[in-house]
Write a protein that binds this DNA or RNA. Structure first.
Lengths: 124, 124
DNA sequence: CTATCTAGGTGCATGTTGCACATAGGTAAA
DNA sequence: TTTACCTATGTGCAACATGCACCTAGATAG
């Protein structure tokens, strides 16, 4: 997360936590997760390729398990399930997210404090 | 920000916004900013090399200006000042940070909602 | 037969990071 | 003097992540 574009200060996107959360709610395949992710985080556009790669990565790490399912209509799907390790990872991620939320709040507090003092005089 | 370590779900570190904020407060050189950054964000350890590279990058983008200062003691320092563009960038970053804070809160809300329902039964 | 949607992926160029190392001025101790 | 350490700024390289474009392939609609 971070600044990928040329003149952008990038903050993170909750890709892996969101995927774990969605799969925990309901076992799903990648294509479905892409759509639900874009519904859950409408602000952040994420490439399909990125999602698929994260899913494979999390499977390698043991957070997800997958199996191929053929349905009546359409091509086969790789169905993901969350593992015990994955649930632990999600809980750990939640702790980090709470922590990061506090860091953001701390930053904003410092910013506003500083703004109050040396701040922009246009509003005077 | 993102997952750099092998089994870590990385959220961002407010490197560039923090540097802009610190330089806005007081024109500084890199080494000083590294220490103040680690004081401002004690949770996040950041490599000196990373800080220096962000400073040069932000200078290229026009958010900072630098000039060499020799002092009575020690080697020369590159002193950074924030520009008008840099202040705009900081304000934009603040908007994004507020937005991201809301995304984190939204994620946490969904997580807790889901936990309440299908959640872990250990606590029952 | 062609276009389109679903579904899952890969190749390559680019950008970012961690780690180690290089350079260099100054200071204090052995 | 030589050694060691602190200040101060950076680079080289390997590893990793992403955006963009592209590929495969089943099914379905025209």
């Amino acid at each position: 997360m971070s600044a990928k574009n040329s003149d952008e200060i990038s903050l993170d996107k909750l890709i892996e936590p969101s995927l774990l959360l969605l799969v925990q709610k309901k076992p799903s395949h990648g294509y479905e997760l892409i759509q639900n992710f874009n519904c859950l985080n409408p602000e952040e556009e994420v490439e399909p390729g990125t999602i698929y790669r994260h899913l494979r990565k999390m499977e390698k790490k043991g957070f997800l398990e997958s199996s191929w399912k053929t349905s009546e209509s359409g091509p086969a799907r790789r169905l993901y399930n969350i593992t015990g390790e994955g649930m632990k990872a999600l809980d750990n991620a939640v702790v980090k997210i709470e922590q990061q939320k506090q860091e953001l709040e701390h930053f904003l507090a410092v910013y506003r404090e500083q703004d109050k003092q040396g701040g922009n005089l246009d509003e005077a």
